[in-house]
Design a binder for these strands. Structure first.
Lengths: 338, 338
DNA sequence: CAGGCAGCGGGAAACGTTTCCGGGGTGGCT
DNA sequence: AGCCACCCCGGAAACGTTTCCCGCTGCCTG
């Protein structure tokens, strides 16, 4: 470990016998003299020069970095997004910073605030909730931001949305069409954005299938719990015991739906013979479960890709008005509801 | 969008009526005069000053950033690592850069080379393979590196390893103990590091259980395929048809093992009654499958945590000799082999 | 009472680039 | 052949910090 100080542009200049301005120009392609370029390159190789991106950032006022902030990278939906975002950014020479904010909203706001420290040129944000303080912070950012998720219409920020309401409705309609009449719904917490939207979609689906009056508020077949496997299992067991006539269950995500499948198995009910099951998010879990789980894809990968594209456009200097893209959901039917 | 230029330390100094040195000292806690601190803080709030981390980095020669490089964040093992690494680093004030290198070895070397651009203070690397060029690059890095995975003993770099050979052996011994006599193994490609190690572990397990002579090379119950669900399913179907007397199957990862479960179900064999199944990696898939899949955990989360700790120690200035930590595997027994 | 020392604050340099500006040389046009 | 214009290259400033160094003030001590 020699710990020699890294060579700077000055040493290159000395070795090449030219000025530092010429070195900089040669390296950035702002010179036409082939001889100069050759000499500089030779010197660069000789001293083993590598530019300092920090110094470049200070001077050029951009860092080549973009942050992606979400609750938890362990969540399959966010994971899919990262898998698309990272290569897209890398291809354009941007590095990706990952911020897992956890369930803490303060952390989220902290990320937004830290944008002012200008270590990134842009941000893709998946907010858990959107509070007034979020909106305030979003209005004031110095760098472009793309928000994935629901956002009030008057916030001037690029926005990519899934439509989980339509997604849930799609699932319900599919189940009804397959002959189900008593369709239960196990949702996540109602005070989350997706929990709320999926609930609304479920109700609309019932109404459009003629299975419930639009103003029916009894919700006897609806349960709210966490977006987790065990939660789904427990809740499903309870629900199915209380209502043995249920002939279909929609889980608000694949984990819940997996829990439902387990509960049904424990209760000795056949899937899809006795009860049909559909999940949401269409994660890898769905394809490998038994029976393979029908699931509503909310296009996480697409949302990630589109967010990256929008951000790259902004970084490229585009100052068109903020865009609002909604990615349509799609239902993948597998055996669990066939 | 006012796009006003961000205030610098100079404006704070002007507003507070002090010098920029005093502002810097006050903000970094290097001043004892409470009055000064108060005035500076007031001025900071008044002008809305936020320090530029880029300028700070240039001056202080560290960036507060650490990179994590692996093949694909979609891989459950890497994902678990990130989930531990990120909070650990964040708690110490470091930001995390994510590099998905893909299957391309050049990309990996590129990441190593880019360390010289000093936009990070350290790196955690999960190399796919370790070539001479890797070793060379690792010897020359200017910043601390921690490698997760197998590394030649003479490379002077902190190293965290799993022991998938022992892991596979553990699984085989467990199956033998449960009464299995004809234990099959569906491995990934033999020319990958884990494929090779798991194969060795399988053979040792058989030998130690007295189910095969140590020099038996027939491998009639071994198959090599990809580390994927469909591959595991197809291969298992073929294997189980050719050898109906197989009473246990070890899958080289959970995806393969899930494929095995599906194949067994299609063939009408009961799990674990007729055939016991064990997977490896202990991903979320294992707990939610049916029946729940026994799986060998290779301690991805622990490896991530330990790697982060080692790196943080280096960043803290520790220059003890490189450390080599091996995380022991552990078997989680679930219904599929009970 | 005077001198010295400690501590605080200001000026300025430095980190490693990019880029503006200006001077000198060359080539082309008149 | 002379003049003008353009092209190249070098010098220097600037990006926004931190920190070294030095001078000043005030207090304590001899």
């Amino acid at each position: 470990m020699t710990q020699r100080r890294r060579p700077t542009i000055h040493e290159v200049a000395k070795v090449a016998g030219v000025s530092i301005s010429s070195v900089s120009r040669a390296l950035n392609g702002n010179t036409s003299n082939a001889d100069m370029v050759a000499r500089v390159n030779a010197a660069v190789r000789q001293v083993g020069y590598v530019p300092s991106v920090v110094a470049q950032s200070l001077k050029t006022r951009h860092t080549g970095q973009v942050a992606f902030a979400m609750e938890d990278i362990g969540n399959a939906a966010y994971l899919e997004m990262v898998r698309r975002i990272q290569p897209a950014l890398r291809d354009q020479g941007y590095r990706l910073l990952l911020h897992s904010t956890g369930a803490d909203v303060e952390n989220e706001l902290g990320v937004l605030a830290s944008l002012s420290q200008n270590y990134v040129d842009g941000l893709i944000l998946c907010p858990l909730r959107v509070t007034d303080r979020h909106v305030e912070a979003l209005r004031q950012t110095a760098v472009p931001v793309v928000v994935i998720g629901l956002l009030p219409d008057d916030v001037p920020v690029d926005n990519v949305r899934a439509d989980s309401r339509v997604g849930a409705r799609l699932a319900v309609e599919h189940l009804a069409e397959a002959g189900a009449r008593r369709i239960a719904f196990i949702d996540g917490p109602l005070d989350t954005v997706p929990g709320r939207a999926r609930y609304d979609g479920y109700r609309r689906g019932l109404a459009s299938a003629g299975l419930a009056a639009a103003d029916d508020q009894t919700d006897e077949l609806v349960r709210f719990t966490d977006f987790q496997f065990e939660a789904g299992r427990q809740t499903a067991r309870e629900l199915l015991t209380a209502h043995p006539d249920v002939d279909a269950v929609l889980g608000a995500n694949d984990l819940i739906a997996m829990g439902v499948l387990h509960a049904l198995r424990e209760l000795g009910r056949d899937v899809p013979g006795d009860v049909r099951v559909v999940g949401m998010d269409d994660t890898p879990l769905a394809a490998t479960s038994f029976p393979p789980l029908s699931s509503v894809s909310l296009g996480s990968a697409d949302r990630g890709r589109i967010a990256a594209e929008l951000l790259l456009r902004r970084l490229d200097g585009d100052d068109a008005p903020p865009e609002r893209v909604t990615v349509p959901p799609s239902l993948t039917v597998r055996e669990s509801s066939r």
